[in-house]
Nucleic acid binder design. Structure first.
Lengths: 235, 235
DNA sequence: CGGGTTACTGAACGATCGTTCGTTCAGATC
DNA sequence: GATCTGAACGAACGATCGTTCAGTAACCCG
């Protein structure tokens, strides 16, 4: 039913027997944000798991897959994580943390105009999803493979970020700077356009990271009927 | 990193031991479009598989899970499908078919004004995702679990639907009816807001299906700077 | 009434799953 | 130099995976 109406990356290319599975992401190499996890074997495990979980899914990845890619025995992973579940939980937690930090950081250098605040949030939202597409996909798709206990830390962070967005929207509407057809659906729309970035955007393509963020800011302002010069019409 | 900035449905509720897995969808019951598959055991299998694949994922669902829910032996499924893969492939194909049919049907009763055409497409896109959320999720998330061969029929349909959207956008821009910051990103945005519907929308909530579609049409027109009355400003 | 097709059972197959265990070994500490 | 610690190995655990297969009951068509 869906057809996201975006390209899909099924490897129907020249490659071998062609009975390969599709790859979920356009970006090749999975990158974990530099300072989010200290160097060492634990970080290597998380990086490899990020690559696998993003492309094959949590249930589609075996501990032996990870071990082979790490050039380790499967049992060696258990010196660093108590279970496969905990590896995913840590990725999901780190992902939420990185995202929430980006949103908070974007707001601190900004005046208290709701329009400027929305621009900052949308820009950060887009940049994070475009810069760390694997992490974004794992956080958004694979969190459902976690038990409630293991997902809880991430969900707590998520609730805060949601509150941040809704607060700005609320205030913008109250001040008459925004005009939305429906609050919940519009908030979902602002979120959605960022969340889907990993599935189509290629940083090496025509659109630079900055330009992508600019486009998303523009589209968001249009959805809110918000105009940046405080007096009148037109961007 | 992501935080879709929408609610998540992790069952942290009262339930038992609480070490349950999260459920991906807000809607409880999985519905397969009535006329898309004839009645019989084959349809029952697809319906149960739709429920499981949407909530637990393809790799998170075993053939025994399906058999138990169907009150059958695992081996009985192989009288109807040659493999577990083929069950998913059929769901993905049907889903794409339903979506593409909805898009095509939406266009036939409409004049050749790009604005009216975009409204029809966006409305159909939203309605299909809101009406059949399980199918939408399986098509968009689990297609990556298929081999290139099995995904091919669905991908062919997807390419057509993409062409439909891009064609209307292209023509609208050429005629000066649309003004977009970036064609690829805007097309992706139009698609994204529909694709994310299953993750937050509840048909039983405040927003009716029709109202949801109206909101999406409005948001889309804003993103395109398209105004419905052919002469001037304002919706 | 008899022969064939279809849908299903129940048992079993080899493979792979996540995880545990006893052991080894390098490097830090005393 | 003795002791301890942490990381990693290699083998193995029971469980579960997708799938196969012989057998059976029910049905259709002649």
């Amino acid at each position: 039913m869906p057809i996201p109406l975006t390209e899909t990356n099924v490897r129907s290319d020249n490659r071998a027997m062609s009975s390969l599975r599709a790859s979920r992401l356009r970006a090749a190499k999975a990158i974990l944000p530099p300072s989010s996890v200290p160097d060492g074997t634990r970080r290597r495990i998380l990086e490899v798991a990020l690559q696998f979980f993003a492309n094959e899914g949590f249930h589609g990845t075996s501990v032996r897959d990870l071990a082979k890619a790490l050039d380790l025995q499967p049992s060696a992973l258990y010196a660093h994580f108590p279970s496969k579940d905990h590896v995913l939980a840590e990725l999901v937690r780190v992902g939420h943390e990185v995202h929430a930090s980006a949103l908070r950081a974007a707001l601190i250098g900004v005046c208290d105009d709701p329009i400027e605040q929305i621009c900052a949030l949308v820009r950060a939202h887009a940049l994070v999803h475009a810069t760390y597409p694997h992490l974004a996909v794992v956080v958004n798709e694979e969190i459902y493979a976690l038990t409630a206990e293991l997902a809880a830390p991430a969900l707590a962070i998520r609730a805060q970020s949601m509150a941040l967005l809704h607060g700005v929207l609320e205030r913008g509407v109250a001040m008459g700077r925004f005009s939305l057809p429906d609050k919940a659906a519009t908030a979902a729309a602002l979120s959605a356009i960022g969340v889907r970035i990993p599935y189509w955007y290629e940083p090496s393509g025509a659109l630079s990271l900055d330009a992508l963020a600019d486009v998303h800011v523009e589209l968001s302002l249009r959805m809110l009927r918000a105009y940046r010069s405080p007096d009148g019409k037109k961007v």
